[in-house]
Design a protein around this nucleic acid. Structure first.
Lengths: 202, 202
DNA sequence: CGGTGAATTCAACGTCTGTAGAATTCAGCA
DNA sequence: TGCTGAATTCTACAGACGTTGAATTCACCG
């Protein structure tokens, strides 16, 4: 990463360059650090060791690059499959552990961070986050239990998951940011469980 | 608001202009909509019906303008005073209602939105948010109950409050965004109560 | 061996940004 | 009345941004 333009020589290079993937990787990292609006194509290109025009050659616009970089590499339902086979009374805790696991996995963390950092100031990214929540968390809530008000419960779960990610990983609020996975699971697990199972309307 | 430059005439005007306050008001609104990095001094000046250089004249830099605009107009402990006199078993619910009340109050909502939108991509704003959480939520937790681990509990409360604000007001996640105050209080109140009173370590 | 098309860079455009300095008009005080 | 200083605008700079078009080099296929 971050190799500057090598020779300043124009034209095609020999061998498999893997440039497209390098750009996507750099983009995920930059979007994760600065959000969509804050990240720059010039910066991404520099990280990938490439001319900014090449980014445009591959992806057209910054927005299309973002969409491409955000393609989720793991089908979330597969990640959550293991959750299904646990003690139903500890479902909330299992979900929190899964979420924390995602944030500890370099590539997934970059995508999560990028999506959240961008969604807060950019409308299209917010729409992408809404879609992700609806298609993932809602599917999980609806699939694991058959309670009423699945959408409402899913959005409550999302509010705590998003808040946890921001407080712990983005704003680095102590002591939550440094707490062990076990402690966080012990504290937040029951919250998710509550949104799954208890009464949530007045 | 948003009156364009009137006559294009230079020099001082007659009477109390109230320009400084107009700039601060416009700044709060713009920072709320776009966050610190996305808001522009030119845009703020336009909303205040004033030349951009005047903003610089009053506040020096964009960062100082932000700090000035974020000065909290209401001492939060006063807002939370009423909470103290309620049923201790419904403390979580009372806090959620207070927070939702803040988000429905135009000026306070602008500041909350500005602080959160900025904190996600800007380091100094993140530090301000951390300070706010520490000085407000921690003080409340420590003042209302005398449990162990007050800091950890406070950061857990903050994670749910921040997540609620983002999901409901910034990302507009349905059906949470349209739910009634009563429903949200019924769902999220117990979560806060749990972070206040239950065991939160493994 | 020649040609086509992809990969790559260069140079440039128009626009927007935060900030600065100088000029102008006025309020308030001596 | 005259001076000082605050309020306000104009003009401008220097840098960054996304995007574009043309030029160059190479891989691959016939």
């Amino acid at each position: 990463m971050s190799a500057p333009t090598p020779g300043g020589r124009t034209g095609r290079r020999s061998g498999e360059s893997g440039t497209r993937e390098a750009i996507l990787e750099a983009a995920r990292q930059r979007f994760a650090e600065h959000g969509f609006d804050g990240a720059t194509i010039r910066g991404i290109a520099a990280d990938a060791g490439v001319d900014p025009a090449l980014v445009h050659h591959y992806f057209g616009t910054k927005e299309r690059l973002f969409v491409e970089a955000m393609r989720f590499p793991v089908v979330p339902s597969e990640v959550l499959a293991s959750v299904r086979n646990g003690d139903p009374d500890r479902l909330g805790e299992a979900i929190v552990r899964t979420v924390l696991g995602v944030w500890e996995t370099r590539d997934l963390r970059a995508q999560a961070e990028a999506l959240i950092r961008s969604a807060v100031t950019n409308d299209k990214a917010a729409a992408m986050l809404r879609t992700f929540v609806t298609s993932t968390i809602l599917a999980t809530v609806a699939g694991l239990t058959n309670v009423e008000d699945a959408e409402y419960r899913a959005s409550l779960v999302a509010s705590q998951i998003i808040g946890l990610g921001i407080a712990r990983y983005i704003v680095a609020l102590e002591p939550l940011a440094s707490a062990s996975v076990d402690d966080v699971a012990a504290a937040v697990g029951p919250t998710i469980q509550h949104y799954f199972t208890d009464a949530v309307r007045a």
